[in-house]
Write a protein that binds this DNA or RNA. Structure first.
Lengths: 220, 220
DNA sequence: TGACAAAGATAACGGTGTTAAGTAAAGTAT
DNA sequence: ATACTTTACTTAACACCGTTATCTTTGTCA
């Protein structure tokens, strides 16, 4: 009996720990399912056609259940944007590693930036146009340092600056000018109907060409 | 009888026309009041805090009355954007006339563009970020040719091109590159919290400087 | 004065985000 | 095994939204 109870106790404890971990894992799974459904609905229908009720229906839950896994609609959108920032950071990181030349590197980053924007319009809109505040919002889950896309760009420009490949002055000015250029091109492509995506490569080439000519100019 | 009826008919027609004109004028006045209220509410609370019920309440009408003067919410927003485009076009026109030098002219246009964007953020967001399709939507009232801001920019660049002051090639590429640059700077300033408006002039100077260095470069 | 058209208001439908209260199941301790 | 508690989820409801259909009022004209 004592032996039995002992066995049962240990097994119960193990089960409790196991079940606690499993509960946590199950909770994470449901959260992930909700997030995937939300991402899908958002990528398909954009911000306007994105509703909590729609997300819930997709997973077979009630609408209010979403509030058990996310603070509110904005929190869910932020989670979606985090996935976007993750992808975006990896794309920039890959571009960064394609070449060792500081100037070519910046060009690769610019092209990767634009390519991501037009390839993931819903994500890009959310991250940089509709919810710009997400850029500076700190990740509460704090899991991954959300591969710092901005940091990659800053580093690349600093390296080109240190190598004397760009005009003297505050390198951050170059960062913002470059960012403005690529963001402007992406944003206009996504928003303005007259700028079809067909001639985007021409405009990309021209923009980067002009920017680099301006960047490269030596002191005045 | 025929004479009398004739006289009565003409007077009746005149009266009808007169009263018809006044009715039309009154209708235009109410429409204008609604539009002003809508603009105010929109400029104060942005697109999210903008509702037909709010507009109606501001004028003391019922919400459904708005539909007697505007097709729907989007039509009302479009009317607001038309006012914005009017102001915007005039600002660019003024900038165009500040100087006769083709290159300086483009610089003045760029600065006017950015100045308008940060001075009228709600209008700018609506016109170029949230409802970019309004750019190419034709004005149904067809009253004013909505002073063509884009045309002014295109003309300025063509003139600089014709004067041999910018790099050879398709001038429209320069137009889009310039547009991307200034729009990018405005859009980031409006959306990204880390880009406070304090250093905007520095960034503006730097952006235009880089762009013009790139523009001015002669053939390769 | 009576017919008619215009202007406006009410009521309602289906949709939204969000909160409060209820329910059924699972876990836990005695 | 039973009683208590926590968890997961649902239903009901509130306040808002855009939009439409159906009144009621008002003014114009013969």
């Amino acid at each position: 009996m004592d032996v039995m109870s002992d066995v049962k106790a240990t097994r119960a404890t193990r089960l409790r720990e196991k079940s606690g971990a499993r509960r946590q894992q199950q909770k994470a799974e449901v959260r992930r399912a909700l997030l995937d459904a939300a991402s899908g609905l958002f990528l398909e229908h954009g911000l306007t056609g994105f509703s909590l009720r729609g997300v819930a229906e997709r997973v077979g839950y009630s609408a209010t259940t979403v509030y058990l896994y996310f603070e509110n609609k904005d929190d869910l959108l932020f989670a979606i944007s985090l996935d976007g920032f993750e992808q975006f950071g990896q794309a920039l990181q890959t571009a960064y590693e394609t070449t060792a030349d500081p100037v070519e590197r910046i060009g690769a980053l610019g092209r990767a930036y634009i390519a991501f924007g037009v390839a993931h319009p819903a994500h890009y809109r959310l991250m940089f146009m509709e919810r710009g505040e997400f850029l500076t919002k700190t990740n509460p889950h704090d899991q991954k340092p959300t591969s710092d896309a901005f940091g990659i760009l800053v580093r690349a420009v600093h390296e080109a600056h240190a190598a004397g490949r760009v005009r003297p002055g505050n390198p951050m000015d170059l960062v913002y000018t470059l960012w403005a250029g690529v963001h402007g091109l992406v944003a206009l492509t996504l928003c303005v109907p007259m700028l079809n995506e067909a001639d985007l490569t021409i405009r990309t080439d021209h923009l980067l060409d002009v920017l680099f000519s301006g960047f490269a100019e030596k002191a005045r």
